[in-house]
């Protein structure tokens, strides 16, 4: 019986590569969005803070699937004609950007007050204070939750299969339609996700033990 899985493994692996590429791009974009949102929320003026809060609340309170379909149905209306790949990548990045922002915000908040004071006492301000004292320490604290969010993101990319992006999950569905062996194929798909996400969590463990405490 597992023959069905082995025979179709090349297809599934091709889907897995799309999932990996999509996840990498989205993780980068989501981190960038997350940093901007975290800074806006923590240090921005009233307008920036308001926009950041609305964005965070909207993304955290609605299902990713709703956002995926919203992009699929709404973008063409406003004249933005994007293919499923671009649309899917944008939505996943925006969605997990909100979770990334929480990771960075919490990390910034847990750098002790004394570190700011110490930096100022040494005559540092603004960009130098942030760049030399605060951000390096915050990044260490952000490591493990950052990896967790990346794992959520990899799993989240499975939802863009519903708008026709041929990543791992949609490839699995296509193979099932051809082979009529859902247990083996979806079992195999799940195993591939397991390998990707478990490797990520091992990276997280390594980060936790390697990085010196702030």
């Amino acid at each position: 019986m597992p023959n069905v899985l082995f025979a179709n493994l090349p297809f599934l692996l091709r889907g897995a590569i799309v999932t990996l590429e999509l996840s990498a791009v989205c993780a980068l974009l989501a981190s960038a969005i997350g940093i901007v949102a975290a800074l806006a929320q923590s240090y921005g003026n009233l307008v920036a803070r308001g926009i950041a809060l609305i964005y965070l609340y909207l993304m955290r309170g609605t299902p990713l699937l709703v956002m995926v379909f919203a992009a699929y149905y709404l973008l063409p209306y406003v004249g933005i004609d994007v293919d499923p790949t671009t649309g899917g990548a944008l939505v996943v990045s925006l969605y997990f950007g909100a979770f990334m922002s929480e990771v960075f915000r919490a990390a910034l908040a847990s750098v002790p007050r004394g570190q700011w004071d110490a930096g100022r006492a040494l005559g540092m301000h603004g960009r130098r204070l942030m760049g030399i004292v605060i951000v390096p320490q915050a990044l260490r604290l952000a490591g493990p939750p950052f990896i967790n969010t990346c794992i959520m993101l990899v799993k989240g990319t499975s939802l863009v299969s519903v708008i026709g992006l041929a990543e791992l999950t949609l490839t699995g569905r296509e193979v099932v339609e051809r082979t009529l062996a859902p247990f083996q194929v979806f079992g195999g798909v799940a195993l591939i996700y397991l390998v990707i996400c478990y490797s990520l969590s091992l990276c997280g463990k390594a980060l936790e033990t390697r990085l010196p405490h702030a």
Partner: peptide, 21 residues
């Protein structure tokens, strides 16, 4: 580790299509 590292959508497909077949 198994449930935490696999998407819930894939698990849903596994049970829905798998048991039907």
């Amino acid at each position: 580790q198994l449930v935490r590292n696999t998407p819930v959508l894939v698990q849903m497909y596994f049970f829905y299509f798998g048991f039907a077949m």
